[in-house]
Design a protein around this nucleic acid. Sequence first.
DNA 1: CCGAACTTTGACGGAATATTGAGGTGGCGC
DNA 2: GCGCCACCTCAATATTCCGTCAAAGTTCGG
Lengths: 239, 239
Amino acid sequence: MTTPAPVVLVVEDEPAMRRFLRTSLRAHGYHVVEAATAREGLAQLAGRNPDVVLLDLGLPDADGIDVTRQVRATHRTPIIVLSARGQERDKVAALDAGADDYLTKPFGLQELLARLRAALRRAVPGRGGAEPSVVTAGELRVDLGRRQVFRAGEEVHLAPTEYRLLAVLAAHAGQVLTHRQLLEAVWGPNFLEQTHYLRVYVGQLRHKLERDPARPRLIATEPGVGYRLRDEAPPAAGG
Amino acid sequence: MTTPAPVVLVVEDEPAMRRFLRTSLRAHGYHVVEAATAREGLAQLAGRNPDVVLLDLGLPDADGIDVTRQVRATHRTPIIVLSARGQERDKVAALDAGADDYLTKPFGLQELLARLRAALRRAVPGRGGAEPSVVTAGELRVDLGRRQVFRAGEEVHLAPTEYRLLAVLAAHAGQVLTHRQLLEAVWGPNFLEQTHYLRVYVGQLRHKLERDPARPRLIATEPGVGYRLRDEAPPAAGG
DNA sequence: CCGAACTTTGACGGAATATTGAGGTGGCGC
DNA sequence: GCGCCACCTCAATATTCCGTCAAAGTTCGG
């Protein structure tokens, strides 16, 4: 069987550059998914589960570094950053935020393709099941690849923010995530103090996902610390 | 508790550059293994099993591209190529031969370090930043990375202050910690005299963790000095 | 331009936790 | 035996934190 074409998510606001990438990549056998904004990019990431992300840092609606960090909170997909800024501190910031590579514009197409191949080559061996993109907890099932959530087999519709919060919790199931960690991953580093958001959205998630929202079993509160998605199904209630 | 220093194999023939890399990397906590030729490099690779390889392409005894290919034939160790040649075809050749990254000399130290971190981050799957470090004492298990505590396999819920106190004791298991040390670590430097807090919280921890809180085995009192978490399981009571 | 879905913000009751105080226990020197 | 000291236990109070609801603001699509 032939290998399916790798899916490349291109997040780039300039139409000319986006068109250039689209045609070049398609000509070389890739399947291209496009997004013009950070918001759109995050949605595509969740929906299409690309094999690699090409991310322009100069997006209109968000800081590219934040986007990198938000992607890393739930996905291990390789990220190649494209940027007009060639300062060393920009590169360091992007790489430390979780990017796998950094290319300064203008760059040669052949180099981009080679770095793309390098990123895909590394990722492939792990594709045999290294990263479980489906997390189950009790009667809850979260499919991080398809952006779908099921409760007892029934699909549940979640708003974008609701889903991202749940995705972060699911990506670290069983582990306590602090308020700050969650806020940074979902809302970005400018919202580290807004624990109120968490209360509201955790409440909404419980309302949609828990059997009895008043006595939550899936999303547990760690008072004064944060929240945690229980990864083991608790035994049936004895009383 | 500290991660062992990652081992970096530097394959570089110019003594000045080698020395620069050696001192810079050591200053940043890496363990450096050196080789001046390709032959030597391959021998070190087999013998020392480094976490990452920095490979100069302009070696005297072999073509760097061939070296890259030879490494890849047997190892998955990340390779970061350093080269004076910045032509696109050189980059493509190195990356397609199996290199993970390509830096053109002269390069900034910070960028090199960031790309090094990126390569290491990818290589170690479970190490996203959270240290596993688990401390066991008898039937007690403290997972400092996940902020979870188990007693005989059952998870125990601890309030923030309770957990912080236990975490300090666990981080120095077997060692006596004075009242002042504990108070400073948990409550801060303004509470050094409040030994009463310790009594209350040690009592609560014993109540939650000890099999018989009246005769504590895990958290031992050192009268007039402080407390200590026993790190060895005491033999089962014989009488 | 309007309506639907979503996000942000504010108010308030109640739960969980931290702090404080009073009384009890046990070892030790005298 | 007595008193002292350090420690332990229990419980009341104070404080912080959390869950809920609903209104106001925003975004998006028709």
